[in-house]
Design a protein around this nucleic acid. Structure first.
Lengths: 216, 216
DNA sequence: TAGATTGTTAATCGATTAACAATC
DNA sequence: TAGATTGTTAATCGATTAACAATC
């Protein structure tokens, strides 16, 4: 038995189970069956059980899963820490917007600072975190041992910014720039491409009925 | 030969090819090989050729693909229109942020209006599009024949909002609320779950080497 | 013609699902 | 015990890739 490599899609779903278990816990539920939890997250119960099997065995046959214990096991299995530091690279419209978004903090992610190549032009804007010039990025990342970054720079500067970030030690990048990034194999990039999502929706609307399903 | 059902993942990649072809066209390239285009978008050349095969045959053996003709064929194949109207539902931090994001317009998507349940509390904010109360949504959607919406309301109101939107005739929803939405089979939902993305990154950083790849 | 590159098939790989023995 | 539900295997499905004949 080696540590299993968990597929990325399973990781997404497992996060979803975790979130759902938080709700169940708040509502006072102590046990939940795979079919109930699966229904709440929109997956098949067999898929849920298989996903959980990557992390271990937590259920009781005939009974289901203990809500709170499973929630904890999932958080542990996903390697969640109390507060994971993150930097924002690019403080244009989208970057500043995301800084104001509360959702990150809830999940345990704190945006420590933002970096932009044109700090002076942003002096009028109120930003909730310290704003630094791009040159200070490597020093900051090393000093605060930041491993994750959100990238919101215009496409033409994205690769350049990534090279600097990776050199500085960033290992995970949530990329909002509409560009395919080149990174070493030990760096993870997750892309959120808003135009692509709209384009995709546009294709599938009116194609009605038998369209292949997914969940992003 | 029936119209083929194109998998969603292929649609994403085909959009990417289209974007890359625009750049090649601007740079004066007239022909491009599957391997060059594939390299530029980070896929295997055989996958690219297979993706294109869903739309038709556009290449010349021994030569490659004509850049401009392929670009046009892709836009047509994806059913792109000059200006697709979209509404924003929810004008909180994230919603207002996305309104300011320029990227949508470039792709041919125009956000016509925003809707929020607490219009009065937003009177101080400068918003680039008309802001209406939620009650006006159904009328607006029908009047302007809007088919697509971006959803940015807090999780607890999301399903309720979706029910109204679907009733009004919305067929495609880009969902930023961290909730699994229930919709009829003829409505398409694409989820962008920012916390989930960070959680996912967090799992894969430091798991280094052999992590399974994807591109979102 | 010889070299290059497509379009397409067949082989491979991985992910989902149904099914059921184990067992509470 | 009888009924319920897990954990896991085997079957199915779909997507990726290698390979190559077709052909410019």
């Amino acid at each position: 038995m080696e540590k299993p490599v968990i597929p990325q899609k399973s990781i997404y779903r497992i996060s979803l189970y975790g979130r759902c278990l938080e709700r169940l816990h708040e509502n006072g539920h102590e046990m939940v069956s795979s079919s109930a939890l699966a229904a709440a997250t929109g997956v098949k119960s067999s898929q849920l059980r298989r996903d959980l099997a990557y992390l271990g065995t937590f259920g009781t046959r005939g009974r289901g899963y203990p809500v709170e214990a499973l929630r904890k096991a999932i958080h542990e299995g996903l390697g969640r820490v109390q507060l994971q530091p993150v930097i924002m690279v690019g403080a244009g419209n989208l970057g500043r917007a995301l800084l104001r978004y509360e959702g990150f903090k809830k999940g345990g992610y704190e945006i420590l600072a933002a970096f932009d190549s044109a700090v002076e032009s942003l002096s009028g804007r109120k930003i909730s975190v310290p704003l630094y010039s791009s040159e200070e990025l490597p020093g900051f990342v090393k000093k605060h041992k930041v491993q994750m970054a959100v990238l919101c720079v215009p496409g033409e500067y994205a690769q350049e910014a990534v090279n600097v970030m990776v050199d500085a030690g960033i290992q995970g990048i949530l990329n909002f720039s509409p560009v395919v990034l080149q990174v070493p194999a030990d760096v993870t990039v997750n892309n959120v491409d808003l135009s692509l999502e709209l384009e995709n929706l546009n294709y599938f609307i009116r194609k009605d009925s038998k369209s292949p399903k997914k969940s992003g």
